[in-house]
Design a protein around this nucleic acid. Structure first.
Lengths: 231, 231
DNA sequence: GATTGACCGAAAGTGCGAATCCGGTCAACA
DNA sequence: TGTTGACCGGATTCGCACTTTCGGTCAATC
């Protein structure tokens, strides 16, 4: 069985991520990555069929790690699934991952035509499930019009933040998260304290959904399909 | 007194706006504008010293017209000054002005280095006054952290809307405005009905501030400074 | 079998003179 | 006095040959 070292694959992705942040997709040569790791260029192609798949794997790993961080936070405190904690929490976690930030800001300089492909599909599915679960358990108000759009639009501005305007770029991230928390709680959550039993149940449901997403990401990372026989 | 026709100036700005939308700042030649109006190129320079000032005048007129529309809406119904009506109202009015939309989306293709200059300064000042007045009269909650940032970030996503993602691009504009209204009311306004007396008073204050802004814009449009004597 | 780097060809970059475009001016004109 | 468009020159674009870069392969090597 041809099983290229996973540890080596990770070192390759480490180098790729570092170089990607520094010089952008187009300026990073596969050779650069190989030399940074101290291996031959051909070896990189033992792991992924081409450059694009390599970087897709990199972004998958980033997504997996990020999702895992959220998952851990929920495990540490199930009340984290409440929208006004979950959303600002994800906001903070995401902002500590420059590659993910660059990706969802659509940084065209950094990712030259690096299509997100199925990556967003799964996230969208999860978000839909999140919303549905929340509404069903009464953790999000039923009277919000067009909930999907409402959440998306309300949140977007926080992520794009000082992409334009620079006006608030030195407001501390935690303070921005606090503002987001206020917004989500007042506009999307029902008044009063949530029922601990419901929280525990929803927490369990979402945790397993997140687990599934993480392992789905992880599976995609090292799939290089070495046995590609022609004909 | 050298007073080039204001009506002609307006026709020039009309043509400039049309061409700007169609081909972008760089591709619009002053000659194109002149020919579209049916006048000589030199005549354009009787109105503005150079191309950049012409387009600044165009954007000023857009801003003036937009602001005036908001003003008229307030005059027609003073309750329009309530945040949950004012902000979605401005949202709708703005979205009907493609040039303004392009400008605040920072459409670099369309405006090549066309600095906003003092244009944003005044809008920021007005926004600050709006917020301060609202808070002082109890029309916006006092417990919102970092109000300026909160309003800005909450609103931004609605304006940027489907610049990214395209996911919600065929949600009707009015529905988006309704979502925004819900957001603003629940997150920024105090519960209960506002006092009609307060509404009338604030309406008067804001109206005169808007009037001032409109005429400030209008003054800038035709200022071409023909008597520029050297040293 | 795993690994490598010389090698290939396509594609992108470079240098540079020629051609073109266009903002801005102003003498001529109405 | 108001208007114009030919004209100027700086900047941009174009054409084109040449060079370099780099993704991907594979015979040779370990």
């Amino acid at each position: 069985m041809s099983h290229p070292n996973r540890e080596r694959a990770d070192r390759i992705l480490d180098a790729a991520g570092e170089l990607l942040l520094r010089m952008g997709y187009r300026k990073v040569a596969v050779d650069d990555i190989a030399r940074a790791v101290g291996i031959g260029k051909g070896t990189v192609y033992l792991h992924w069929r081409n450059k694009e798949l390599l970087f897709q794997a990199l972004m998958m790993r980033e997504s997996a790690d990020l999702t895992d961080e959220v998952l851990q936070a929920i495990r540490a405190d199930p009340a984290m699934i409440l929208p006004h904690r979950m959303i600002p929490g994800s906001f903070l976690i995401t902002h500590r991952r420059p590659l993910v930030m660059a990706m969802l800001r659509g940084n065209a300089e950094m990712f030259g035509s690096l299509g997100d492909l199925a990556l967003h599909k799964q996230q969208d599915a999860l978000r839909a499930q999140f919303e549905e679960t929340m509404v069903r358990h009464g953790l999000i108000r039923a009277d919000v019009p067009n909930l999907s759009y409402a959440l998306s639009a309300s949140t977007l501005g926080f992520y794009l933040g000082d992409t334009l305007s620079h006006e608030f770029e030195d407001v501390p991230l935690e303070e921005k998260a606090a503002v987001l928390a206020h917004l989500i709680r007042t506009a999307f959550e029902p008044p009063g304290e949530p029922d601990p039993g419901v929280v525990a149940e929803v927490s369990a449901v979402l945790s397993s959904a997140l687990e599934e997403l993480v392992s789905s990401y992880r599976n995609g990372i090292y799939a290089h399909d070495p046995t590609r026989a022609p004909g």
